[in-house]
C-alpha cells in the first residue's frame, strides 16, 4: 500500500512503463497456454498493421468468370489466388487479411469506448454512492435485462446507418456510410458492454475506498475527481486487464456477428462475418469461402481467451 502512494506521488520515470511492460511480457513466458494465445493475437495484430505492404490482390477486385474457386487457383487473367475466390471472384486471402484490420480496429475502438464509459460510471457509482449509485445501477440493470443481441438489433435497426438518425448524422458529419455504421456499432456495443464494466468497477471501488490511502487523499483535500481518476481507477486495474482481454474477444465476435446478420459494416468492405454471410447462400460451392473467415475469427478469439487465461494464472500466482 505504501508503494502505491510513492508511485502516484512521484512523477513516473520515462522508462518505468516500458520496463514494466517488458517485465509482464517476460512473465507471460511462464504460462505456455498464455504464450500461445499471445502469439495468436500478435499474429493478427501484425497482419492488420502490415497488410497494405503485403503482395496481395485487390480485396475489392471482381473477376466475373472466376467465382467460388478452390485453393491455389489461377484465374483466366493469370492471377493466382492462394485460398481461391468468393462469390464475386474476389481473392479470399486478401479479403481475409484486410478483414482482420476492420475487425480489430472496430472491436478495439468499441471496447475502448465501452470501457471508458463503464469505468467512469462504475467509479462514480462506487465512490459517490447514494443517488448516483441508485441511478447508475438502475440504468445498468435496465440495459443488462436485454439479451445482448436483442439490444443490438433494436439499436441498429432503428438508429443504424440507413435509419433517419443515421442519415442525419451522415449529413451533419459529412462522412461515408462505413464510418456511420462503425460509429453506430460502437454506440450499440457501448450500451451492451459498459454496464457490465461499470458493475465490476463499482464492486472493486467499494472495496478500495475503505483503504487508508483514500482516506489520506481525502484528508489532503484532493478533489473527488482526482481521487476517482488517479487514486481509485489505477488501483483497480488488475482484474480489469483480464476482463478487458475477454471482453475484446466478445466484442470481436459481436462485430463479426453483426456482419453476419447484415447489420455490420456496409459492403464491399470485407469483414469476416459478412464474408460468411455472402458465401452462405451458395451451399456446398460456397464452403471454401465460408470456412476461412470462420477459422480466422475463431483463432483471434481463442488467442484472446488463452491470453486472458495466462494473465489470470500469473496474477493469481503472486
Amino acid at each position: 500500500m505504501t508503494e502505491t502512494i510513492i508511485e502516484t506521488a512521484s512523477p513516473p520515470r520515462p522508462d518505468s512503463t516500458l520496463k514494466k511492460l517488458g517485465k509482464s511480457i517476460l512473465l507471460l513466458k511462464e504460462s505456455r497456454i498464455g504464450m500461445f494465445g499471445g502469439f495468436l493475437v500478435l499474429f493478427w495484430v501484425v497482419i492488420a498493421i502490415i497488410v497494405p505492404l503485403l503482395p496481395l490482390q485487390d480485396p475489392l477486385a471482381i473477376t466475373r468468370n472466376a467465382v467460388l474457386k478452390g485453393l491455389f487457383y489461377t484465374d483466366p487473367r493469370q492471377v493466382f489466388h492462394y485460398l481461391g475466390t468468393d462469390n464475386l471472384g474476389r481473392d479470399i486471402l486478401s479479403r481475409l487479411l484486410w478483414g482482420s484490420r476492420l475487425v480489430l480496429f472496430w472491436s478495439c475502438a468499441a471496447t475502448i469506448v465501452a470501457y471508458a464509459v463503464g469505468m467512469l460510471l462504475g467509479v462514480i457509482a462506487g465512490y459517490k454512492g447514494g443517488w448516483w449509485d441508485e441511478i447508475i445501477s438502475f440504468i445498468g440493470n435496465v440495459l443488462l435485462s436485454f439479451p445482448l443481441l436483442v439490444l443490438y438489433l433494436v439499436i441498429l435497426t432503428n438508429f443504424g446507418a440507413n435509419s433517419q438518425a443515421g442519415l442525419w448524422l451522415k449529413h451533419m458529419l459529412g462522412v461515408g456510410p462505413a464510418v456511420i455504421s462503425g460509429v453506430m456499432i460502437i454506440v450499440a456495443v457501448m450500451f451492451g458492454t459498459a454496464p457490465q464494466v461499470a458493475r465490476i468497477v463499482r464492486g472493486l471501488v467499494l472495496d478500495l475506498k475503505t483503504r487508508d490511502y483514500i482516506a489520506a487523499a481525502e484528508v489532503r483535500g484532493e478533489s473527488p475527481l482526482y481521487i476517482m481518476l488517479v487514486e481509485l481507477l489505477p488501483n483497480a486495474r488488475g482484474p480489469l486487464i483480464v476482463d478487458a482481454c475477454l471482453r475484446l474477444g466478445y466484442v470481436a465476435i459481436t462485430i463479426a456477428l453483426l456482419g453476419f446478420l447484415g447489420l455490420g459494416l456496409p459492403p464491399p468492405d470485407p469483414d469476416w462475418g459478412k464474408m460468411i454471410n455472402e458465401a452462405r447462400s451458395w451451399g456446398s460451392m460456397g464452403m471454401n469461402a465460408m470456412l476461412w473467415p470462420a477459422f480466422a475469427i475463431s483463432s483471434l478469439v481463442l488467442g484472446l481467451n488463452l491470453l486472458a487465461d495466462g494473465i489470470r494464472e500469473i496474477s493469481l500466482r503472486d
Partner: peptide
Amino acid sequence: TSVPEFASATI
C-alpha cells in the same frame, strides 16, 4: 467457447 456460433455452424 472461442468458436462463435456462426463459425462453428459453418464448420
